[in-house]
Design a protein around this nucleic acid. Sequence first.
DNA 1: GGTCGTGCCTCCAGCACCTGGAGGTTCTAG
DNA 2: CTAGAACCTCCAGGTGCTGGAGGCACGACC
Lengths: 139, 139
Amino acid sequence: MDISIGELSRRAGVKVPTIRYYEGIGLMPETSRTEGKQRRYDATHVARLNFIRHARELGFEVEAIRELLDMSGQPDTSCEEADRIARRHLDEVDRRIAKLEALRGELTRMISECGHGRVAECRVIQVLADHDQCAHDRH
Amino acid sequence: MDISIGELSRRAGVKVPTIRYYEGIGLMPETSRTEGKQRRYDATHVARLNFIRHARELGFEVEAIRELLDMSGQPDTSCEEADRIARRHLDEVDRRIAKLEALRGELTRMISECGHGRVAECRVIQVLADHDQCAHDRH
DNA sequence: GGTCGTGCCTCCAGCACCTGGAGGTTCTAG
DNA sequence: CTAGAACCTCCAGGTGCTGGAGGCACGACC
């Protein structure tokens, strides 16, 4: 195969500047070029970029993806590390969900208590303004 | 009152460089200075910064906070706009939660199916590598 | 083989929201 | 008066891209 960066972009669903950015940070390898300096890719690059895209969609950080890619290149080693990375990330996702649920609760309450009158009585504004105690208590 | 930036930082729970940053982007006003050019604040600044911090904790974007601050300065106008901003943000939070829940499902499945053997059979790596079809189907 | 249009190249600036360091000045307690 | 903490400005960096400017390459068609 002999794929241009635009074609790779289409096949993997990743924008062209993003591919170049991934090359810059070492997630994608520097690849062979045409005489006119244009990048040429093959099927292995499509697979790698798909791997990266999917990991990003799952919210893995670039550092974690780097490690996962290294691992997938060593199929005979233990996958303990991959498991650890995934669990760590799951914990992080759980934390984010918990935090957002709490926000959602507060926002919902704020909105439902808003009497739709003047700003002076607006619950939304009040909650934001009056949080001195709460915030200090929790720290 | 006659508060230094460090004292303001402690009272509002916002780091000193962040306060200066907020001044730079216009969330906090430029304030009076001592002869030696050091910033001096009063109770209204503490309240304003608390408002900002709490709004940030609730995930409001800086632009939204700017609007909310403007509103809280006009207590006799309708709070319709505040309500709208809060609802818009709630929708956004709902979207983020939904997305994270989906991720959580996929991550949990991935981890539970991992046989803890070699990378070659690792479900975590496989899921990331084999998503060509899925991804293309959805587009 | 010339030309046209699209796609590619590099470089750099910007987004959101801070964070921290360097190098220098000011405040304040003892 | 002096020591040291806290302040000042300016600027670079971090995360993960994104897009524009200005210029060259590719390939299809005539």
